[in-house]
Design a protein around this nucleic acid. Structure first.
Lengths: 191, 191
DNA sequence: GTCTATAGCTGGATAGAC
DNA sequence: GTCTATCCAGCTATAGAC
């Protein structure tokens, strides 16, 4: 309980980034103003620029941060059954951080050039991970391409609509998606 | 070749709507200004307001127009094999109009309230159509919900990345998606 | 039917007080 | 570390000439 007064910079930064993620995910990057973010975070607009050089960098950091952490989570996984592990990791990670998940899948086209390249490289990395898993299950390179995109498309949509009230739990949902994904990839190589 | 001079209103309107669709799909609704649309369409900004009351209505009309035409195309289909017909119709329609397809799937969250409701109703209609097909194939209502969303998510992503150069043709791609979708829906009811 | 001109706002970002 | 105050660029939408 030290430091009940003084520097709250870390709290402020966290609050700003969380609030920005929520607003970007909800209304879209371009429709959210720095003043909106500031108001929701309980500071004034000028203060935001202590924590980010500009609005685009804020979006970029949210996107790359999410993707980096997602890839790190995957690398820390038990990958005995790679396809199932991939689906489970993607869903559990994304449902724990739905705002940045939505941003990483739907808002990054607002970035310009240099920043876009950085994020795009991460996303390609991640796609390639899934692509390789599909190849080891016997898909042709051509099939692997659109199957990878299809699986990621359907997984990325989940945080937009799923709410763990009433219906399936997140774990149950993940099981269903593992089953569905297995059926999409016809022939396991372990014959 | 009558009327090489005089009223070109219809051409202008078509050009404006096409240009707007392309820009909204490419950069996102909020990042495109009326001036951008006007410049690309070869008119001045004020002229746009002869053809739409405001920018939001323009987006709304593009979205509802796409969805209405998509549903009409479905209703005109040979529906002997409903699931395959649905997938083929969705892909061929969307790939013929990739800009409005992207708008209908990704840009409509920029609309506000009344307009959003109108579009949302159309999209729900369309989702329900697919949901019913899945129910007749023996899926439980619960499974039908997330399977519907998964199929539409993966289909809606296609116009974002697919270009008919080099690789698969649109028809070949549609065949693969029909196969993949059939595998996602485990048990045909026609036993 | 298209233009010019502009009103009226809101946006991102900065400077300097405290 | 946060605030106040502000600059100025860019936006939507309108009014009225041609």
């Amino acid at each position: 309980m030290a430091r009940t007064r003084g520097s709250f910079a870390e709290d402020t930064k966290g609050r700003i980034f969380n609030v920005a993620a929520a607003l970007f995910a909800g209304r879209g990057f371009a429709a959210v103003s720095m003043r909106d973010i500031a108001a929701e975070a309980g500071v004034r607009a000028g203060t935001l620029y202590r924590y980010t050089p500009d609005k685009n960098t804020l979006l970029c950091d949210l996107g790359t941060g999410h993707l980096r952490a997602l890839i790190a989570a995957w690398e820390a996984c038990d990958q005995t059954d790679p396809l199932a592990a991939f689906v489970r990791n993607h869903l559990s990670f994304s449902l724990a951080r739905p705002d940045t998940a939505v941003i990483a899948s739907r808002e990054l086209h607002c970035l310009s050039d240099d920043q876009a390249r950085a994020v795009f490289a991460l996303r390609t990395d991640y796609e390639t991970t899934l692509g390789r898993i599909l190849l080891t299950r016997g898909l042709s390179p051509e099939e692997a391409v659109f199957t990878t995109r299809s699986i990621l498309a359907m997984l990325s949509q989940v945080p937009i609509w799923f709410r763990a009230r009433g219906g399936l739990s997140a774990q149950e949902l993940a099981m269903r998606y593992v089953d569905m994904t297995r059926r999409m990839v016809p022939l396991p190589a372990t014959a």
